[in-house]
Computed example of a mutant assay.
Amino acid sequence: MTKTEFLLIANRVATGEASEQEYKIYLTYYNAFQVKESAWDGISDEEKSSIKNLLSERIDQHIRPRILSLWPRLRLAAAVMALVIGTWLFTTNERMSVPEKPGISSASIKPGMNKAILTMASGKKFDLTALEKGASLKLENISITKRNDGSLIYSILPHRKSQEVSYNNISTPRGGHIEINLPDGSHVFLNTASDMKIPSDLVENRRVELLEGEAFFEIAHNKHKPFRVISPNQTIEVLGTKFNVNAYAEENVIKTTLQEGLVRVGNNIINPGQQAINSSGHIIVQSVDPEEAIAWMRGDFFFDGNSFESTMNMISRWYDVEIVYDYKPSGLHLSGQISRARSITEVLERLQELENVRFKIEGRRIRVIK
C-alpha cells in the first residue's frame, strides 16, 4: 500500500465513510503504530491517551456490528492518526512486526496454504498440492484441474460413467485449505483439517458428505434437484444457497450458518442470519451474524465468546501444531479478530496479553504455561 492509498483510507475513517474492509486495513496499521514509540514524537501525553483509549475501545468490541454508528466518536482520533501515521509509515523500509517475547519462537511454523489430498474409491491417494497450476489430472472416471488461483475443478468424465456409484474423497491436511468447483456448478471451500466425500453420480443425485471439519457451500440453483450435504447426525437440504457447516469432532457440535437462501436442517427451516446448532441430534436455532462464521474464508480468525480451548483448537489446525496444556484457564472466553496470515508468534502474543496465560514453542508443539 502506498502512502497516498493509506491516507485516503484514514480520511474515510475520519469522515465515517469507510467500508468494513477499509476499517480492517486501518486497524492493522494502527496495531503496528502502537509498538512504534517514535511515531508518538510531537504528540502530547493527553493526545496519546485519547487516541489509544478511543481506538482500543473500538478494537475490543465485535468487529462487524454497528460500525457506522460508532464512527462519530472516532473521527477526531482517526484524523490525528492519519496525520501522524502518514508521516512515518511509508517513509521507512523497516518491516512492521511485533517484537517477540521471551519463550516464543516460531521460525519453522507457517500459516496454512492451498493444500489438498485426493483419495480415490480404490484407495489410491494423490497429493493435489503438487499439481501445477493450469495442469489436469485424469484418474478413472474423474478429472481434476488446478486453476491459476489454486482452486480445483472437479469433473466427472461422461464417457466413463458406470452403473455402480463410487465415492472419492478430497481432504485438506492440518495447515491446508482449498476451493473446489463441482460439476453441477456449485462451489465448496474446505477449511483446514476437513474431509469431503463426492459421489460419482453427483450431477444426477446432488449430494456430498462432509465427514469432518468445516466447509462453506455456494450451491447452484436447481429447483428440480435439491442438493444435500450429509454430515454426522444431520442432513442439510437446499435448492440454491450459501451456507457454512462447522463439524469438527473436537467441538462436539455441528454448526450450520446460513448466509443466503433457505435450508432445511433435520426438521428445522433455517433463514439467512440464523444458525442451527446440532448437539448429538438435538438442534437449536439462533440468530447470528453469518459474516462471523465465514471469517475464515476472508482470511481471519474470529472469536466471539470462544472458550480458550476452542481458540487453541483453531490455532492448532491452521498452523499444524500440537497443543500441550501445563495450565488450562477455566471460564475464559475470547472475543476479537486477527488475520490468519499472521505468524503464529503474533497470534500467540495477542493471547499472551491475557492475564496468567503464556506460551512456549517447542518445535511444532505449543505449551500453555502460567
Rank of each mutant, 00 (worst) to 15 (best):
F359M: 04
I254W: 01
T87P: 00
N252W: 15
E140R: 11
G305P: 02
L89D: 06
K328S: 13
I366G: 11
E250R: 14
A78F: 11
S280L: 14
K138R: 15
L348H: 02
N271D: 10
G185Q: 07
S343Y: 02
V165L: 07
S19Q: 10
L128Y: 14
T92E: 06
R350F: 11
W318R: 01
V253S: 02
E212K: 14
R358T: 09
G86E: 04
L351N: 00
Q61C: 05
F189S: 15
F227E: 01
R206W: 13
A135E: 15
I323M: 07
R73H: 03
E37C: 01
T28Q: 11
S106D: 11
L74W: 12
P158C: 02
N31P: 00
L202M: 13
P290C: 03
N141I: 07
W71L: 10
E209I: 05
V188Q: 13
F227A: 08
K24L: 15
V288E: 00
W318E: 03
I63P: 04
A39K: 12
I323S: 14
Y26C: 05
D326W: 13
A247L: 10
I361S: 02
E46T: 05
L157W: 11
T192F: 10
S316P: 04
K115P: 05
L128M: 07
M81T: 01
F126D: 01
Q163E: 12
I294A: 00
D320C: 14
N233A: 08
I344M: 12
L118P: 05
K133M: 09
R364W: 15
M1K: 09
L354E: 00
P329Y: 11
S108P: 12
L83T: 06
T192G: 09
Q275I: 05
N306V: 11
G240R: 06
S136R: 09
N313G: 02
G176H: 09
S339D: 03
